[in-house]
Amino acid sequence: MYVGLLNFSILLVFGITGLEAMFSHGPSGSTESPVYSSFTAPANATDKQVADAVHRYLEPALAGPVPEFALSRDDDNNLTFTFYSANGTQRVTVLEKENRLKIEKRRNTIWQFFNNLHATTMNVNTADLRVRLWTLYTEFSIWSLIGMALSGMYLWLASRPGLRWAQAAFVAGAGIFILLYVVTR
């Protein structure tokens, strides 16, 4: 009971996320017009070092530096990468010849925000304190979910295992899951 109370809001986030996933057709949200910002790429820097310099310069909210594998070049050979956060994305193109950055922001809907929140776990790549504190809550909730499922099962078996409707609910849920798993496999 106590664990459930501590996890009340994130259980709602999990539930909302699952419902959002059913109706999802991929990323959506509002895309803002591109903005440009002056930026001179450091001389003799690698692409990763330039991306890190852009991260320090823009300080995108909640987002960490871009890993090397996520760097790419567009058709004009400009360095491009994307900062990800629960709120959406910031796609950056480094226009080195023009000494400026092209920044395209996309803001997630509130439902996608919840979706991203539920996926914000301990291995997220950011030092932002708000995100780090949230990951602690997510970590706690993951173990809590397993603990609550197992303790609920124990409480049923220890108190009212003969309840026919409960048996039927368990058999139906287990049967559907196992059948789908096997058939999908």
Binding site: L145, I146, A149, G152, M153, W156, R160, L163, W165, A166, A169, F170, A172, G173, A174, F177, I178
Partner: peptide, 13 residues
């Protein structure tokens, strides 16, 4: 109880 038991395998997943 019934919802928890029905969802048990899904929640464990």
């Amino acid at each position: 109880l019934f919802l928890g038991l029905f969802a048990f395998f899904f929640l464990m997943m």
